[in-house]
């Protein structure tokens, strides 16, 4: 749980709160007296946090690359089987220059993007609709669970038969990999919205539509975002598999094709790219989305 590490500082609040009328002295419940941190303190905290975050990334990767370097250099393996980091880096620069890397990355990105967006666009409203009606939810839950148990890659043979090799097959596999976790988690999220929260909205005069948009959707958002993050993670893995088996472009294809040519440096380069891209997508897009919803609201139901 990221919330343990990224606690927001308390910000500024007025110390204590005036209670209407005469407060009983010493009545304990009025929350902790929050004293605002000075600007200096806040600044120091921010700098410290920035450096810490950078260290959390730099230290483990430096260690990994060092071990890799030592193993490749002194391990006695031929470098065409176990390329050292500097060779992979050189290959990376070379492929970056001739455009291969960009081309393959773009091919993969397109597939993950289209597949995920389509899966979310269909899975989210469908999950909400299914979650709203108990009968529909009861009848469809086993089906959703059933399909969620079938990994995206199990669909690859069928997809190749239907769509041939290439973009459509890859996107279809990504779609399926994202769709079911998305649907499942949205359904769970909608179902888990507290009845009292809905009752509160109703007694405040909300109509059905307002209950959905103002209570059920935000109430289910934590699960929805989790579904997205999980789903896109599954989709990313499935994409590599489908590019190995059912495509002639993309990072997965690049890795598999390089193996046939004994270019282990390209294989490793492809793997590094997969990891780096996922790290970026997760830390720039998915994690902030998740932590913002969870931390801000403190929604631990």
């Amino acid at each position: 749980m990221t919330s343990l590490h990224n606690r927001k500082s308390s910000g500024d609040a007025n110390p204590g709160s005036p209670i209407v009328g005469t407060p009983l002295s010493g009545a304990g419940d009025d929350g902790p007296a929050v004293i605002s941190a000075t600007r200096q303190e806040l600044g120091r905290l921010r700098v410290k946090r920035f450096f810490l975050r950078a260290l959390y990334i730099i230290v483990p990767f430096t260690a990994l690359i060092t071990i890799w370097y030592l193993a490749a250099t002194y391990g006695g393996y031929p470098s065409y089987l176990f390329p050292p980091p500097q060779k992979v880096l050189a290959t990376g620069i070379e492929l970056l220059k001739d455009g291969t890397l960009a081309e393959q990355t773009w091919a993969s990105s397109q597939r993950i993007l289209f597949g995920s967006v389509a899966a979310i666009a269909v899975g989210l409203p469908l999950g909400v609709a299914m979650g709203l009606n108990r009968t529909v939810a009861n009848y469809s839950a086993p089906l959703v669970t059933f399909f969620q148990a079938i990994p995206g890659i199990a669909w690859i043979p069928l997809a190749i038969l239907w769509f041939g090799l290439g973009f459509r097959t890859a996107t279809f596999i990504v779609f399926l990999s994202v769709f079911f976790p998305m649907l499942f988690n949205t359904l769970i999220g909608v179902r888990s919205v507290q009845q009292n929260m809905i009752n509160a909205a109703l007694t405040l005069g909300a109509n059905k539509r307002q209950v959905i948009t103002d209570v059920i959707l935000p109430g289910a958002l934590v699960n929805i975002v989790t579904g997205m993050r999980l789903g896109i993670g599954y989709g990313w893995r499935a994409l590599v598999a489908v590019e190995i088996l059912g495509a002639s472009s993309g990072l997965g294809y690049m890795i598999f094709d390089a193996r046939a040519q004994l270019k282990s440096d390209v294989v490793v380069l492809g793997m590094v790219c997969l990891g780096v891209i996922w790290l970026i997508v997760d830390s720039v897009l998915l994690k902030p989305l998740e932590s913002r919803t969870i931390e801000k609201w403190g929604v631990l139901r």
């Binding site: 507290q194 009292n196 929260m197 009752n199 509160a200 909205a201 109703l202 007694t203 405040l204 005069g205 103002d214 209570v215 935000p218 109430g219 958002l221 919803t293 801000k296 609201w297 403190g298 929604v299």
Partner: peptide, 18 residues
């Protein structure tokens, strides 16, 4: 049916956390 003419206060507050 429920209506804004009858306000309600709940034991568990039922505030919207978002």
């Amino acid at each position: 049916r429920p209506g804004a003419d009858r306000g309600m206060v709940f034991q568990d507050y039922a505030l919207f956390p978002w």
